[in-house]
Structures are given as C-alpha cells and as structure tokens.
Design a protein around this nucleic acid. Structure first.
Length: 576
RNA sequence: GGCUAGGUAGCUCAGCUGGUUAGAGCACGUGACUCAUAAUCACGGGGUCGGGGGUUCGAGUCCCCCCCUCGCCA
C-alpha cells in the first residue's frame, strides 16, 4: 500500500469558478484520488481557497463587507459547491488560516536567514484618495500607442501593447477613478530565485517523465532572456500574511503582506496541518506527508493544475522549498509529478470568469446532477490540446454513454430478472465458452483501464471504461437470456446471475468518474462490497445465488432536446 | 517577433521510437433482437492524414519551407 499526496490548484476566493476551472484541476485530481483509494492506497487529497490579494479586497468592498467576512462566506459557498460535485478532499482549507500565516512566515524567515531574501526599494503608484498603492492593472488611462482610453497599467487590451503605469496618459485609479496619483518609494522583499537557479534546473532536468507542456514552460522561464528573475514576494496591502513579524530577519515592513503567489502554494502544506487540527491529530500526523525528515520519504506527491499555473508550481514554490531545505533543519517534500491541463472552450469562445461567459459550477449543478458533468468533463479533459464544450455534444455524449450504454444495461438486466426470476440472483446453470470469453475481455480491458488511470491518461481511461460498459451489452445480446429462458431456464439463470454481478463490478470501476451512480448501483444490488475486480472471474460471483436486490430507478434520465435548447439560450450570454 | 501545442472521416478525437488495405466514439444507412430509458447488438458507406518539396525500398509518423488555429512570453 503506497502513500499518495494529491493537491489541486487552489481556486481564488473571488467568485464561483466555471467548468473550465473545474476540469483543469479539482476534477481530475478527485478522479485520481478516488482511484488510488479504491486500489487500497493511503491518500491525502488537499485543496483550499486562495483568499489573499487585491481582488479579494475589492470584491469585499463592492459587497460592502469586511474582507475577512467576505472570504469566510465565499469559502463556504465554494465548499458547498465542491461537495455538490462530490470532490472528495480530505481537507478543503483556507489560505487565510492561522496555520498558513505561521508557515508562510516560517518559510520567509528561514529563507531570509539563508540569505535568499533581498530588500529592494522601488517606485510605485500611490492613490491618495484610495489611500493605497495600486497594482499596475488597477491603474487606467489612455494608451500612448493606440489612444484607447481604458488601457490598464500593465497592458493595453485594445492594442495588446505591454505598458508601464507611468506610460499612461491621464492615469486614474481603476478603483475610485481618482486622478490624484503620485509615485512613491516603497520597500519590498524579493526572493532571490537567481541564486537557486542551478538547483531548480537540475531538479527540472531530472523530471524526464513529466509532460512536455509542464517542462517546456518551466525551462522557458528558467532560460528565456535574462533567465530566471528574482521575484517580489511582498505587497502594500492590508489583507494577507503580515511581512513584519516577531523574529523576522528584516525591519520596516509594517503594513505590508506577502504576495498571494508566495503564500498560496504554502497553503497546500498548511491545509494538511488544518486537516490534522480538524481531526484532533498532532503535528506528526501531517509531518509524515510533507517532511522527508519525518517520514514523508515514501510519499508520492502529485499536483494538478491548468497550464497557467505551471510557472508557479515548477519554479516559485519549489524555490521556496529548496531554499528552506538548505537551512538543514526541516526537509520539505518537493512535487514528484505535475499533471497540467489546457483550456476548455465554450461554444466557440473561451470560458471567462471576468466576462461571465460560460457555465459556472453552481449553475451546472442547478440543472443536472454532478455525475453528468463529471463524466462529460473528464471524458473530454483538455489533456493534449484545448477542447471544446458544446451543448449538442454534451447532450448526445451523456445520453449515449450514461443513459443508453450504462444506465440501460442496469435497467434491462434487473428488470428482466425481476420479471422472470424475482428480485434475487437465480439459481442453476453452468458457465460456458461465452462467459469465459466475456471474462477474458473484461480482464484485458480492466487491466488497460488501470494502466490509464495510473498514468493519469484521463480520456483514454474514460474510453476504456465505456468499452467495459459496452461489453456488458454485447454479452447480453449474444447470450440472450430472454431467449434461452424459453428452452433452458437454468442457462438463462446463470447468464442473468453473471450480468447482475457485472453491475457491482461496474459500480466499483466507475466510482471515480460517477460516484453517485456507483453508489446507487451498489445500493440497488444491496451490497457494500467495493472490492476491486483484480480477478474478474471471482468478482463476477461475488454476489451469490439467492442474493436479494432491488431494481433501481432509472440511473440517468436523458436530456431532452427542448431542455438542451433552453440551456443553450439561457447560457448564451453573460452572467449578470 | 520568440516559444509550446495543434491542424487526421460531417462532429469530437486515437495513432509510441517510420512498415501489411489509416482507427474509435458520435452522426448516417442496412439488418438482427425484443430483456431494457423508441434502449441494445451486428454490418456498411465515408478521409489524396493543412499545402509544397525532400530523405527512404517504404512517411499522418523524419528533415526543410509555407499557410491556419490556440495559448504563453516579449
């Protein structure tokens, strides 16, 4: 039994995520966690909300609430939705937790003591009326290049030219609109990534099994232009982990906090500590997942994320870990494998949180159960390239795969048994060549399915699972128990018994993709036997002669054309 | 402009280090069956593998040039 630490990129607190966000990190991470658990591994599956930073402050202000209250509310909202999608986190933490504050300050202090943090004085735009420094993108003005009047301080969205806030003509605060801006001097802490470059490069180079999408992005940042740059890890903000604290190896950082991209990945660790706290466990309970000097040596750590998060997970966060480990004290675990995803597009364009375009997680759950979304999203996961969601494709794929192939299989055999033999596994008959062939095929396919799941080849795993479902229908079609029943009821009985046992096997195999349906199938078969079908022949006799079951309700109702048209229209515009 | 990935049947996609008549699912057509959510199963039609050169006995699969899409970076 191996130990697996799995983290999903942590969603930002500001608002509800769309399906593209879901399929890029949380959902595939959940699939993998569920699979590994089903195979008997010890799993720690961690996620959290990323709560610090300017967007959270502004959203809270807009909602007229203190930022801490706003984050607490939104965390609950996101946690509820995650439960709705059956995301099986062992803990869903918060980056604003005391644990994360302590760990973030601990890492910063340790890095500082190693000489890996530099104090840098720089010029930044300060808004007098807002009484705050403004991040580049919160300064608006006229683009000096194209004359667009709403260009942002980091880039003009009209002509795409990269800008410096001081380039803007008639600059103003994007928060208040105030033009009373001035350039002020401010001091910040920088993580000296350049001095860690050799270590990072050697580490990346050792990861020969990583997807090209992951390593190419990392190498690009390592070697492009001037190479890896030192990175500012503090900001002039009130909401975050204070950069000045007792024991800090620097002074004069009052009123400043760590940058979200410094403290957010540390939350993976902190959330595991939060998990221990929530379960009344001691520090050793989470140390054994994260500290290689405290028993985490045999842990395999896998991260899931969209491609936009790759630089932070291949460079910034590892720099924090490698630098802290140099101190020679606590030794922290580096990631072993990064599974990254491309983007899911929506009906010819992009999903967009800021524009409110696409289907958002709460809306999705309001129109269909989680399994529908889980199945479609996972079986179309954007692994090799961007993929596309369309309502037509969603409707036909879900109706065909879930309702016709799987749901109807369960329906036809349970109802057949009920009408001919009653609601218990019938007695009699001997298996023959047809059954042997079925077992052989299932064995081959299940081994392939396991290989794909282990390798996190999600689309291929989904295709194989579907083929496993199909083989049940093929068997029934060939065996035709409704036909043998007329001439040889014992023969029909053994066929029916085998097919009913397939329902349990399908439930166990399918659980990572469609947990609710799997539970319904097991409940219908009146069993809690979730043993993995390592030996298919044995697995197909797990439910013995005479075992009672109840014919389940329709597992998946079909999506009607009118519904699809309705949703298509309803979600065509932007979310208000 | 630099870089990544991609451009394969109407649609969504597989095709590893080059090798028999290029595959799957959906959609479409024909047939079978009637247990089942008008479900299922079988068979079939359909592609000059973005374009053009080249290497090779042989290339979606390698090399060069060009076109297009998406994203990242500057």
């Amino acid at each position: 039994m191996a130990r697996h630490l799995i983290t999903s990129a942590i969603p930002y607190i500001n608002g509800i995520k769309h399906l593209g966000n879901l399929v890029g990190s949380q959902l595939p991470a959940d699939l993998y966690a569920r699979y590994l658990r089903a195979r008997g591994n010890e799993v720690m599956f961690i996620c959290a909300t990323d709560e610090h930073g300017t967007p959270a402050e502004l959203a809270a202000a807009k909602a007229g609430k203190p930022v801490a209250d706003y984050c607490a509310e939104m965390h609950k909202v996101q946690a509820d939705i995650a439960r709705g999608f059956r995301l099986s986190f062992d803990h869903f933490g918060r980056s604003s937790s005391p644990r994360n504050r302590m760990l973030t300050q601990y890492f910063a202090q340790t890095l500082g003591e190693q000489g890996l943090i530099a104090e840098v004085t720089e010029q930044q735009v300060f808004s007098i009326d807002d009484n705050r420094f403004l991040p580049d993108r919160y300064i608006e003005g006229t683009c000096p290049n194209c004359g667009y009047t709403r260009a942002r301080g980091d880039q003009c969205e009209e002509c795409t030219k990269q800008l410096d806030p001081t380039d803007l003509i008639n600059p103003r605060s994007a928060i208040s609109g105030s033009t009373r801006l001035e350039v002020r001097e401010t001091k910040h802490l920088y993580l000296r990534q350049r001095s860690l470059k050799a270590d990072l490069e050697a580490w990346i180079d050792s990861k020969t099994d990583w997807p090209v999408l992951t390593t190419s992005i990392a190498k690009k940042w390592l070697n492009d232009g001037e190479g890896l740059q030192d990175r500012g890890i503090t900001r002039d903000l009130a909401w975050g982990v204070p950069a000045q604290f007792e024991g800090a190896p620097w002074s004069g950082m009052e009123g400043k906090v760590f940058y979200v991209w410094f403290d957010a990945p540390i939350e993976y660790i902190a959330a595991t500590a939060e998990w221990a706290d929530a379960n009344g466990l001691d520090d050793a309970a989470w140390h054994r997942w994260w500290r290689t000097d405290k028993g985490a040596d045999d842990v395999t750590y896998t991260e899931f994320m969209g491609k936009d998060n790759v630089p932070f997970h291949t460079l910034s966060f590892p720099a924090t870990i490698i630098g802290a480990n140099r101190a020679g004290g606590a030794q922290w675990k580096l990631v072993d494998y990064i599974k990254s995803f491309n983007y899911l597009n929506y009906d010819g364009g992009q999903f967009s949180t800021s524009l409110g375009r696409g289907v958002f997680m709460d809306q999705a759950l309001s129109i269909l159960p989680a399994d529908y979304w889980r199945w479609w999203l996972l079986s179309h996961a954007p692994e090799n390239s961007d993929s596309e969601f369309t309502w037509e494709n969603f409707q036909t794929a879900v109706n065909k795969d879930l309702a016709d192939v799987l749901g109807n299989f369960v329906s036809r055999i349970t109802k057949f048994c009920r009408s001919k033999f009653g609601e218990a596994l019938p007695e009699g008959g001997e298996t023959g060549p047809q059954e042997a062939a079925l077992i052989a095929e299932l064995s081959t396919r299940i081994r392939a399915y396991e290989d794909h799941m282990q390798a996190m080849e999600i689309r291929k795993a989904a295709a194989e699972l579907r083929a496993i479902w199909v083989s049940g229908n093929e068997y029934l079609q060939a065996a035709a128990p409704w036909s043998t029943f007329k001439t040889d009821p014992a023969q029909a009985a053994v066929q029916t018994r085998l097919a009913l046992n397939m329902i349990r096997v399908y439930a166990v195999l399918s659980e990572p993709f469609i947990p609710d349906a799997a539970a319904a199938m097991l409940a219908g078969m009146n069993t809690s036997d979730r043993r993995w079908p390592t030996d298919v022949g044995a697995a197909l006799t797990a439910l013995p002669v005479g075992h009672a079951f109840t014919t389940p309700e329709v597992l998946f109702r079909k999506i009607a054309d009118e519904e699809r048209e309705d949703w298509q229209a309803r979600f065509a515009g932007v979310r208000s």
